[in-house]
Design a protein around this nucleic acid. Sequence first.
DNA 1: AACTATAGGTGTACGGTGTACACCTGTCAA
DNA 2: TTGACAGGTGTACACCGTACACCTATAGTT
Lengths: 220, 220
Amino acid sequence: MTKQKIVTRKPLSSARVLRAAVALADEAGLEAFSMRGLAQELGVVPMALYKHVANKEELLDGMVDIVFSEIELPSGDLDWRSAMQRRALSTREALKRHSWAIGMMESRHPGPANLRNHNAVMGCLRKAGFSFKIAIHAYSVQDAYIYGFALQERDTGFKTPDSAGEAAQRRAKTIGALEHYPYLIEIATKLPESGYDNAVEFAWGLDLILDGLERLRDSV
Amino acid sequence: MTKQKIVTRKPLSSARVLRAAVALADEAGLEAFSMRGLAQELGVVPMALYKHVANKEELLDGMVDIVFSEIELPSGDLDWRSAMQRRALSTREALKRHSWAIGMMESRHPGPANLRNHNAVMGCLRKAGFSFKIAIHAYSVQDAYIYGFALQERDTGFKTPDSAGEAAQRRAKTIGALEHYPYLIEIATKLPESGYDNAVEFAWGLDLILDGLERLRDSV
DNA sequence: AACTATAGGTGTACGGTGTACACCTGTCAA
DNA sequence: TTGACAGGTGTACACCGTACACCTATAGTT
């Protein structure tokens, strides 16, 4: 009856804080993510966090690097196109799991996973025979597309998985408001019945871009 | 000496609040943009704003629609490719002027300018002969690219236009930290002397995408 | 065994945020 | 003349990030 507390709380650590932070942001969203909320989640007083993280900014930096760490690196065993495709899909998936990270992937102090990722992607392109200049271009288009798509997917996603009835009703109301926009009406009516799928959409655009790059691989 | 105040302040209006809000966000950034700061800018007490705007969310909705209103609509006088190119460049420029809007263009309640814009773009593609399905794809790739590029441009921009000396010094330090990332070192060394230009970069990727779309125009 | 340094959790407090609510005041219609 | 109303004001509340002083339990050294 000496050491044994009633409930010995596992001690904090920056890694544990970071993991909890990612989990909380995942389920609460970035808007509702606060130091105070995180502390509560960890059963601790807000200021306790500051013994393990300098401040919220640095915490966010670390969280973003966790997202980077979940992205598959381009494999050296594959041709460059397949490797790029896999890492693009993997990036989209990571951003779907952690949609709070979408606008922040390149805006924060880069962590080790970030550096490893960028180095590997650029390496894959260079080894595939792309000139430096074209490799930069190729990297830029791909990432712009990936991040931009993630943005759109987040913004146009059906947040509430409401019933088909509700969806139809809302669609009708929307169409009413769209009276003078014939092409928006076309979208509102045809899109739902066209079997639209974000994953398919993403792959389509990615293929278009990779096709274009393939054609340019041997340019200067 | 009855009516004449010392300085008769022009009365507020939602339009004036909105314009001031955009101006303030432009120069202060979204982070530093607050209702209280906006009120001060307008020489008024914070709560006065709420007589003209429901709340901050709705204010942001209106601000984003102002950005949309500054984007050139695709002209019917041009071939679809040129029209798309112009509106893409125009979008990028609007987002450079109002970089606070970058993550918000599709995430807020759409205003009239937003609807007009989307309707016109979709209309341009449909009239150019794209099938509904391909038009959706085409729209999606382009916008993902445009918004994603704006995101990257904002995040990797040289915020402080520091002197060449400082830039070189910082580069040297960066390179030191990059020891084990050969391809990042290549970027850090070659990119600055390669005459990299964001406008050129943007046009390059856009062309690649439009080339791809042109090839697919007559598909189903 | 006694002492002390330190790591890590606590409590309080400050200046910031958005905005609800009651209030006042000047203008215009009846 | 009256009274409604549009629009600016002042106060107050709950929340935010975090600086600072404090306490406490453990580990190392003597």
